[in-house]
Write a protein that binds this DNA or RNA. Sequence first.
DNA 1: CTGCCGCGTTGCGCTTTGTGCAACGCCCAT
DNA 2: ATGGGCGTTGCACAAAGCGCAACGCGGCAG
Lengths: 253, 253
Amino acid sequence: MSQTVDRALSILPLLAEGPADLGQVADRLGVHKSTALRLLRTLHEHGFVYRQSDQRYRLGARLFALAQEAMENLDIREIAHPHLVRLNEQCGHTVHLAVYEENEVLYIDKVDSRYPVRMYSRIGKPVAITVAAVAKLLLADLPEHERRALAEKLDYPMYTSRSTPNPEAFLRELAKVREQGWATDLGGHEESINCVAAPIRGADGRVVAAMSVSAPNVVVTGDELLTLLPLVRRTADAISGEYSGRTPTKDVV
Amino acid sequence: MSQTVDRALSILPLLAEGPADLGQVADRLGVHKSTALRLLRTLHEHGFVYRQSDQRYRLGARLFALAQEAMENLDIREIAHPHLVRLNEQCGHTVHLAVYEENEVLYIDKVDSRYPVRMYSRIGKPVAITVAAVAKLLLADLPEHERRALAEKLDYPMYTSRSTPNPEAFLRELAKVREQGWATDLGGHEESINCVAAPIRGADGRVVAAMSVSAPNVVVTGDELLTLLPLVRRTADAISGEYSGRTPTKDVV
DNA sequence: CTGCCGCGTTGCGCTTTGTGCAACGCCCAT
DNA sequence: ATGGGCGTTGCACAAAGCGCAACGCGGCAG
């Protein structure tokens, strides 16, 4: 809607691919060099862009800072974290927390079996939305038409022979998940990894996040993992309770 | 320089503090609501901003994607990674890679003793610049006046009794580090953690990154850790060699 | 040593673009 | 019912961002 801002923002993904000099930026934006210069300068002032010694531009540190900060201010994440840790202590496996946002599913927290590590490494990268157990839960809760529309336009990469192959199968799976209130991924993403997941709901009953426990086949079989389901669901419900018990309006300071 | 972009970018840090509604954004920007709306819309189209169910805006997933992508495209990181892994295999301790950028030091890679994990959790957060061994190396290489100016304006938090207390001590430490070509942090950040670090240099001899090995006191004493210094330096030199051997211009595709 | 080329940079006149205003519609709370 | 708060829209005005052309600088080649 705003041309200038639009152009400026378009620079960022472009630089994400790698450093570029003024001319390259101007060309790829389809604007005059002087225009690109002004935009880059503005981005620079805000620290979104950095000028390395060879004069080329690359993305700046401010971007990381923002991503980091945004992450830490997610309410659900904050509330859920201690629960995830406790679940991890109880079962020993990797625990994930994920949210849905505009056609993507993001991991926003992780507790690994060894010790707590936020798996930022996954953030931003498209999660395997067609197979991940948490993704199924999040998508299963979308309104009918939105769910259908999304299913149609997704890609269905066959990570393994058990990956969801097409929109029809996916929608069927989502219906099932919606019905039963939990989800699994049995080797659909990586042959030897199984997951069980449960939804976290807000006060209105809508699914606001999903959590899962993952373990490799060699440690526990899919069936054994399923015995953890009650525990996972209980944890998810505890988080749901705490989340929806919150005061709905929370001031921004 | 560009008012519109300037305003739009100012929205992002503001939202990083927490979700905000249109009125709040407009107020804090000092612009009319309709203006704020247009800016937010543009940000939204680019996925930098997300509208949650209560209509309030928060930072969007695209931000994470960008931070992630930028990270992965850092040349040094790519080149260094296998070396870090090998060093980790040899000594078993945690290995870090860090760069300096506009008054901050960022970790850009990590190999933990257990298994490889990118410590993105640290990214964006200010590294303990006054005590970290890698920070000393990176700052020691700055031009005299810049180094001095930076040292003056830094804070000197006393993480432990061995933390660098003030600018004078810091500049002395940097001079020493500059001289000897390596650095340590002996319990300056956390009482029981020691690090040894070595610089990675570009073709022109400037320090482009620094790497370190960290281990808790209980595993190896500071003195024992120092015996690893030759290995660390050799690794750093190997990375330097490979890095500066590169073709200087690298096309952006 | 000198002249050329490529690059980033600057100042400027034109007009597109972003701006603030005021009015509207919606929802919630009274 | 009714009022207030909020997001949203259309519009007229002028500010702002735009591309152009010219400049300065450094590196490379003749």
